[in-house]
Design a protein around this nucleic acid. Structure first.
Length: 909
RNA sequence: GCCCGAGUGGCGGAAUGGUAGACGCGAUGGACUCAAAAUCCAUUGUCCCUUAAAGGCGUGGGGGUUCGAGUCCCCCCUCGGGCACCA
């Protein structure tokens, strides 16, 4: 009987669905393991072969853990709110709900074909009101909380109010509070709430008609759609993520994530330890203290000017009467530029003199104050002290505007560029003279603090997340306005469902403003909606208890599943979703809703699958195509050709003619009787015709082959091009595996006792598999399987004692074929829950290891010894070996080095 | 510019400091077959050589540590990724 993957795969997929084989139920008698994939956004294009890479890897791990006796939670769902569905709605008038449902149905079909072991009873969609009820709930909690720096965590706002009433908080005294109007109280509390409304400089994207978060913008363009983005001051809902900066940074050390990803988050959080120093300023005779932030107070004797950000509030006060106009013109210029233009200008140096002066608190020296866009309003205090000799940006500015450059490190050359390194000895620096730079930094900080000129300060680059979007397809805010004061919708009234609107077209106002009766108890509701990351920030918690209508997750479910043990997904979420989720989780942790303060204990980033495009070469002005090897002889145009009509770089001529009408009468110049295509590695995309659909691979080779092949391609973490060249190899392996059981129609499996040699084949594999799976080294595990199957084929071994464990071992990788063989071996129930240890016979004790014996590192001969032999026994055996004396001869043995089970090296003189 | 990561056959890729190139693809030769497909066997880093034996050279380049380096240390080159006026 031949291996018929088509009937096998559909049979077992139906079986799993009917028996709910992978349904996860809390079970205190078993250790739990939570494996999660980053849920997909269901786009209209469907899945391509790149998507399942991570899903296959995590599925293998889930199945492996089940075999090891764990109770595995492995759910899947859809990140279903988002811009593309809405953009499509704008074009077609179709409700995004409809498009989204259709896309989800298509995804589900594709996922099912690959044979994943998801518990589909826990499926969730972020656009489902029953789900976003909890997104809105979390927002209400954030609205009703503030970050207490003393406690180092979020607390209910009521505690803040109590504190203000009793003793005041920061600049809010009990008296101020007592006399404040409702609006004023609301404004005061808004300054502390975790979810707050505030005016800030935002990324405004005209093309999408909405604001965007920093991680949704790249190179001045929106990540979705690639529209230009500009900075604009607007009042928006924000999440006080910055309050968690230190905790987000600090707990990174406890996570089992890749170094590169942790590093990305560290950079994004951007902790920088420095000093705030107060500089007295004079403008038209008025004096005003201005605080600056610097990490290099030690260079304060080298300060020759100060710079303000154009958006800084200080600009008005520090622009002198005679410079007012010049300053205003400069600021107008800066504002006109989009973010993209600022970047495109490759750091051109611009600026204007403000007409005022600062006084260096250490030297008393008067220095000019300038305004320049190279200083950012949003970081530090929006004002800096400039030390051109030791900062390259200040240097460029000083050179352009001919400001003095004073070096303060001995022997450094600042004639061509600044000396930024933190090394050398201080000079021209008063009491710091002679000190080493590192020493001077500390000494200067101490001095400034002692003299009351400033204080140590830690700054973070991490910004609060802008949380409103002027779009339709997202979660509505549970906020209404009573007399202009934002008020929370009552928890009992959640979910606040998305209203119907007549048209999705952007008109400059938020789409919800057009909804009829968008009111709560007669008062108008907030019209912006939440961004994409809102729904994905706590979905891993919801999977633990997806049908619960009384809580995001019940305490019991949360305490059982706790947090995600293994999270698999792409690095593209490093500074978006993965930061927001950690923030969100820590917030819920602070309020006691969840029991772990980090959501994802271990994280594996799967690489991207790039496309491998194929080209044909058309001879210019003809409809004749020349094979790749012969194209040098002609003048040709390179044309992308659909990779699905190319096999191993050889073009299917008939399929090509049928591909597009203009190629129907194409002629070919062949080499060796075939048409060879050119190729290139490019991003997988429709326009390159290099998209490979997993359905097609499942049709031709089967899901098990697809799974094995994707894993065999290389390490999971690595990006690699999709190249079907090797797919026959793994398909051959599965057929060969089948032939250990079946020869034509004959069932070969016997109950005979296995020989030591046959058992050795099995044990080699077992050792390798356990070690490799834990390291996600699936490609080498598969290699080990291939070796085992080849060896057993050569030994003509079809004994149950060997094959049964082999089926169990292979089932995480190729679940369908192993399920089928398991049944044919006479077992009841799914192989997915076969117990690993039970099917692994004990290691043969007399198992020999071959030691290579080297003399001064050169291999001379080998000795066979039991694995259990001690180094001393190995050494004795080697010394007793005839060959030893032959190779050593007259030379003296200095020492014998034995690496147990591995190698013997004899050092001779 | 700064911070990570990586450079190994014709290709994808293996190697806790211990026989580099596992495994797969491709290629070449052979077996089976009327033929093809499928399957099986053999060879396949490179140089010198008719062949073989034996050997030399080989993990981006240059140094170093070690009995022994793809692996560890220093310098350089190239590629990939991230951040980018963050004071």
């Amino acid at each position: 009987m031949e291996y018929d993957f088509k009937s096998i795969e559909s049979k077992w997929q139906a079986y799993w669905a009917a028996h709910k084989t992978f349904k996860a139920v809390e079970d205190a008698s078993k250790p739990k393991y939570y494996v999660l994939d980053m849920f997909p956004y269901p786009s209209g294009a469907g899945l391509h072969v790149g998507h399942p890479l991570g899903y296959i890897a995590s599925d293998i791990y889930s199945r492996y853990k089940r075999l090891k006796g764990f109770n595995v939670l492995h759910p899947m769902g859809y990140d279903a709110f988002g811009l593309p569905a809405e953009q499509y709605a704008i074009q077609t008038g179709q409700h995004p709900e409809k498009t989204t449902s259709e896309n989800i149905a298509r995804y589900r079909g594709q996922l099912d074909r690959i044979g994943f072991s998801y518990d589909w009873d826990r499926e969730l969609r972020t656009c489902d009101p029953a789900y976003y009820k909890w997104t809105q709930w979390a927002f209400l909690k954030m609205f009703d909380s503030w970050y207490d720096p003393a406690a180092g965590k979020a607390r209910p706002v009521s505690e803040l109010v109590a504190r203000i009433e009793k003793e005041g908080y920061e600049d809010v005294t009990p008296e101020v509070w007592a006399t404040a109007s409702d609006k004023e109280k609301s404004d005061i509390l808004m300054r502390y709430r975790i979810a707050y409304q505030g005016e800030t400089s935002v990324n405004w994207c005209e093309g999408l008609g909405t604001v965007l978060a920093n991680d949704e913008v790249k190179d001045g363009l929106s990540v979705r759609g690639g529209f230009p983005v500009e900075q604009k001051k607007m009042t928006q809902w924000q999440l006080r993520v910055s309050a968690y900066a230190e905790r987000l940074l600090e707990s990174l050390d406890r996570l089992d994530w890749s170094d590169s990803l942790k590093e990305m988050q560290r950079n994004w959080i951007g902790r920088s330890d420095g000093t705030e120093v107060v500089f007295e300023t004079i403008c038209d005779g008025r004096r005003k203290p201005v605080t600056i932030f610097t990490t290099r107070v030690d260079t304060i004797f080298g300060v020759t000017f100060m710079v303000l950000a154009p958006e800084s509030e200080l600009v008005d006060e520090l622009a002198s009467a005679d410079r007012k106009q010049a300053v205003a013109e400069y600021i107008k210029e800066v504002k006109k530029k989009t973010e993209r233009e600022r970047i495109a200008e490759t750091r051109s140096v611009t600026g204007v003199f403000a007409g005022s002066y600062g006084i260096n608190p250490l030297t008393g020296e008067q220095i000019p104050i300038w305004i320049s866009e190279y200083v950012l309003a949003g970081y530090g205090t929006g004002a800096i002290m400039a030390v051109p000799a030791h900062d390259s940006r200040d240097y460029a500015f000083a050179r352009k505007f001919e400001l003095p450059i004073v070096p303060i490190i001995e022997g450094c050359d600042v004639s061509e560029e600044s000396f930024d390194a933190k090394e050398g000895k201080m000079c021209n620096s008063g009491f710091l003279n002679g000190m080493d730079v590192k020493q001077a930094i500390e000494a200067a900080k101490d001095y400034v603090e002692e003299k009351g000129l400033g204080r140590r300060k830690t700054n973070y680059r991490l910004r609060d997340a802008i949380f409103s979007r002027q779009r339709y397809w997202g979660e509505p805010f549970p906020i209404y306005y009573k007399d202009g004061i934002p008020c929370p919708v009552s928890e009992e009234d959640l979910p606040l469902t998305l209203p119907e609107i007549s048209s999705y077209k952007p008109t400059g106002e938020a789409p919800l403003a057009r909804a009829k009766d968008w009111k709560y108890k007669g008062d108008p509701l907030e019209t912006s909606t939440m961004p994409g990351f809102a729904g994905s920030s706590a979905y891993y918690l919801r999977y633990m208890d997806p049908q619960n209508d009384n809580a995001l997750v019940s305490r019991e479910a949360d305490e059982y599943w706790r947090s995600v043990d293994l999270y698999v997904g792409g690095t593209e979420h490093a500074t978006g979703h993965l930061i927001y989720s950690r923030f969100w989780n820590k917030f819920l942790f602070d309020l006691g809703y969840v029991c772990e303060d980090e959501p994802f204990r271990k994280l594996v980033n799967q690489g991207m699958i790039q496309g491998r495009s194929n080209f044909v070469y058309r001879i210019v002005g003809t409809n004749t195509f020349v094979s790749e090897g012969l194209r040098k002889d002609y003048e040709t145009t390179e044309i992308h050709v659909d990779v699905n009509i190319v096999y191993n770089d050889k073009l299917d001529l008939d399929a090509f003619r049928a591909w597009r009408p203009e190629f129907a009468d194409a002629e070919f110049i062949l080499e060796d009787g075939e048409y060879r295509c050119g190729w290139a590695i490019e991003k997988m995309s429709k326009s390159m015709y290099n998209v490979v659909n997993p359905d097609l691979v499942c049709d031709t080779y089967g899901a098990d082959t697809l799974r094995l092949y994707e894993m065999f391609l290389g390490p999971v973490e690595q990006s690699k091009p999709w190249d079907t060249k090797g797919i026959d190899g793994v398909n051959r392996f599965l057929k060969k595996f089948w032939r250990l059981f079946y020869n034509k129609s004959e069932w070969l499996v016997s109950d005979e006792k296995a020989t030591p040699e046959e058992l050795k084949v099995l044990h080699k594999l077992i050792g390798k598999e356990q070690e490799d799976i834990e390291n996600f080294s699936y490609n080498t595990t598969i290699s080990a399987f291939m070796i085992a199957v080849n060896d057993l084929t050569a030994l003509k071994c079809s004994k149950r004692e060997v094959l049964e464990p082999l089926v169990v071992l292979l089932c995480p990788f190729a679940p369908h074929i192993t399920e089928e063989l398991w049944e044919r071996l006479g077992h009841e129930g799914s192989v997915a829950y076969a117990s690993f240890p039970e099917f692994i016979p004990a290691l043969a004790a007399e198992d020999n290891v071959t030691y290579p014996v080297q003399f001064n590192g050169k291999m001379r001969f080998t000795v066979d010894l039991p694995r259990s032999a001690s180094p001393a026994e190995v050494e004795a055996a080697v010394r007793a070996n005839d060959s030893t004396s032959k190779y050593v001869g007259e030379q003296q043995i200095v020492k014998v080095i034995v690496v147990p089970g591995r190698i013997v090296n004899i050092v001779v003189k």
